[in-house]
Design a protein around this nucleic acid. Structure first.
Length: 290
DNA sequence: CGGCTTTGACCTGCGC
DNA sequence: GCGCAGGTCAAAGCCG
């Protein structure tokens, strides 16, 4: 069923009290239908707006988390500044979710993926379909759990590296940082280029691990291994009309929301956290004002 | 036996 | 210049 027919179906079902088979006897006035149509249209627009806001809030939250993590680490100042420029320096990135694709951070070949794991699981393994060789492990200052260093061993010349470390705040959360761009196809999806989202695109996490987000983008919520989505995404990127890209992305977000329960849970948690932050800030403000 | 992990040593960049 | 901390190397050990 295509999108148009789906919309028609929705419209036809907006008035459950109306039985279309007895329209000969009880046909509603055309004005009522138009009114109903306008109301549905208005509701659709509101839902679209809500999705856009949710998307933006989610990106801002992930971005805020990334910045906090960067500044929590005193070391590697030049790297931090570099990352900061990637994440924040591009003012367009703030709204990259809805207005620009691909986001600037993805273009810079650094991406971060959060994976939900069993807290008791001490192995720093993120199964993303690629073949990795571990070449080091370090305990970092700002995090008691060790950080594991991996190189992509699927292709000898592949420059991609991966750092995996448990989140300092949430032991059940693995943070995998991908650097570089694979110069080969994803092992499990031959023929699909990974250039759309280096290090993350084409990743197919194991059932035991649940990817719930990618800093700076909702990229990991989109199934880029799906050729249909790939082609649609590329079409949207090719389109010069920014509104079209935005609309497509909102549609993809909606699709992800409906078919990925873990994303729903993560998004709900993120928004709840954000709301609670706002509430606590408001409370602090009111306390300081009184 | 080959590939992978482990782990201590070494390298490098930054702050003081 | 020195110390600190992140990143990398490479030898040793493990495993299928």
């Amino acid at each position: 069923m295509d999108r148009t027919s789906a919309a028609i179906t929705i419209d036809l079902n907006t008035n459950p009290m109306h039985n279309p088979t007895d329209h000969d006897h009880d046909q509603p006035p055309a004005d009522d239908l138009i009114e109903e149509f306008n109301r549905t249209k208005s509701e659709n627009k509101k839902l679209n707006d809500m999705l856009t806001i949710i998307c933006r809030k989610y990106i801002e939250l992930m971005q805020k988390q990334s910045v906090e993590e960067l500044f929590n680490s005193k070391k590697r100042k030049y790297d931090d500044r570099e990352n900061f420029d990637r994440i924040i320096g591009n003012s367009s990135f703030v709204h990259s979710c809805c207005n620009e694709w691909p986001p600037k951070e993805i273009k810079s070949n650094v991406s971060r993926v959060h994976v939900r794991i069993d807290p008791s699981d001490s192995s720093l393994v993120v199964k993303d379909g690629y073949q990795w060789r571990k070449y080091g492990q370090k305990v970092t200052r700002d995090n008691p759990s060790p950080r594991a260093y991996y190189k992509c061993s699927f292709a000898p010349s592949c420059p991609v590296k991966k750092k995996v470390q448990k989140s300092a705040n949430d032991p059940s959360l693995l943070v995998a940082t991908y650097e570089g761009q694979h110069n080969h196809h994803h092992p499990s999806t031959p023929g699909i280029s990974v250039s759309l989202l280096p290090g993350v695109a084409g990743a197919s996490p194991s059932p035991g691990s649940t990817p719930i987000g990618c800093s700076g983008s909702a990229a990991s919520t989109l199934d880029f291994t799906d050729p249909t989505i790939c082609s649609k995404m590329q079409s949207a990127i090719a389109a010069t009309d920014n509104t079209a890209v935005q609309q497509f992305f909102v549609e993809q977000m909606a699709s992800s929301l409906t078919r990925n329960p873990s994303f729903t849970a993560a998004l709900a948690a993120a928004i709840t956290g954000r709301i609670l932050d706002d509430v606590s800030e408001d409370n602090n403000d009111s306390l300081s004002n009184s």
